[in-house]
């Protein structure tokens, strides 16, 4: 399938909620093009507008302004029944699974096909195949209450795939799962993307989810897209405060230092140069030491990146020299005013 073809095009999406305590501008003009066959991540802090955005894609939430075009169809212009028809091309899974509690796994997977008036026998056959694919061949007649979180999400995935959608929307699909189960579910999504060519949109507040499976990522902050690009590029050198907040200050990667600091710089290097003693050779070449405040490495899509926070000497000329030296070694250097 053509990788660069746009399947979903969002233009100028705005959404304001009015509540008793005033209005909340949840989305402030979102432009986004999703390519056919990619796994696209949308990351942001809680309340950033991620769920609202993903719900605008299948019009569970109707934007106040802007357009949603999927496969050249403008969803906003569709009639109610036209929209229902179109929604079958878009599968969706949720953090809390949202399975029918009074129905078995098999009946849950049959449900969208029942809605679409697929003959019962055909539906059952396809549901069995799907449950087999997600690894639940032996739990077809179990009720959701008898399944673990990971198994419930697998049923939900099978259900979302029942109508052979072209797009799968995942709203915090792994946020209620433990790390091991998360890994399994992400592997499954990756496989679905690869084998069926389904475009997957992943909403999450967890970096590791994006790092694990996404090709491109958008960072959403306060109802607007702060950064967008290939995962490795965005995570390697986030350009905005929102991006930095997410990438370098997330849970386990916290450097154990925070506070204001003068002449403080972040350097980021990748595999190709992380094996050399770059900082050491720079200090020797410039004849002066630097203060290392923090350092860590992380792997993004199989590539290893390292980053350090360093404090450079007071001498401005020496500082310039050091920066130039590092940049010549293909290392990204940027000044940060706080750590």
């Amino acid at each position: 399938m053509e990788q660069n073809q746009t399947i979903i095009s969002l233009k100028g999406i705005t959404k304001t909620f009015s509540t008793r305590n005033g209005t909340v501008e949840a989305l402030k003009g979102i432009d986004l093009d999703i390519k056919r066959g990619e796994i696209f991540g949308i990351i942001g802090l809680s309340g950033a507008g991620k769920s609202t955005l993903v719900r605008c894609i299948n019009l569970l939430e109707r934007p106040d302004g802007g357009s949603v075009v999927i496969n050249d169809t403008d969803l906003m212009s569709l009639s109610a029944s036209g929209l229902r028809e179109k929604r079958r091309e878009i599968g969706m899974i949720f953090q809390q699974f949202h399975l029918l509690m009074q129905k078995t796994a098999l009946e849950n997977v049959c449900f969208p096909m029942e809605i679409a008036k697929v003959p019962k026998a055909d539906a059952k056959k396809r549901a069995e195949e799907l449950l087999e694919m997600v690894g639940l061949a032996d739990r077809m007649y179990s009720y959701p209450a008898q399944l673990s979180g990971g198994q419930k999400q697998r049923v939900a995935i099978a259900r979302a795939l029942a109508m052979s959608p072209q797009v799968l929307l995942c709203d915090e699909a792994t946020s209620a799962l433990d790390p091991n189960t998360t890994k399994g579910v992400l592997e499954l999504l990756k496989e679905i993307n690869r084998k069926m060519g389904i475009t997957v949109i992943i909403i999450t507040h967890e970096m590791k989810v994006i790092r694990e499976i996404c090709h491109r990522v958008a960072i959403i902050s306060d109802g607007a897209i702060a950064e967008l690009g290939k995962v490795e590029e965005v995570f390697r050198a986030p350009k905005t405060d929102a991006g930095r907040a997410l990438v370098f200050h997330e849970g386990d990667s916290r450097e154990g230092y925070d506070g204001p600091m003068e002449r403080c710089y972040r350097i980021v290097f990748d595999e190709s140069n992380s094996n050399e003693p770059l900082l050491g050779s720079m200090m020797i070449e410039c004849g002066a030491p630097v203060n290392i405040l923090a350092a860590n490495t992380r792997s993004i899509e199989g590539k290893v990146y390292g980053q350090m926070l360093i404090q450079l000497p007071k001498d401005a000329a020496l500082r310039e020299k050091m920066i130039a030296n590092l940049r010549a070694k293909d290392i990204l250097v940027e000044e940060v005013d706080h750590v």
Binding site: L60, L83, R87, R88, H98, L99, L100, M101, F111
Partner: peptide
């Protein structure tokens, strides 16, 4: 009945009557 389950059905294209 959980609002989320209703929403899941809506996302599958179910009519209000369904």
């Amino acid at each position: 009945v959980d609002r989320g389950v209703i929403e899941a059905a809506e996302s599958m294209g179910a009519t209000p009557f369904e």
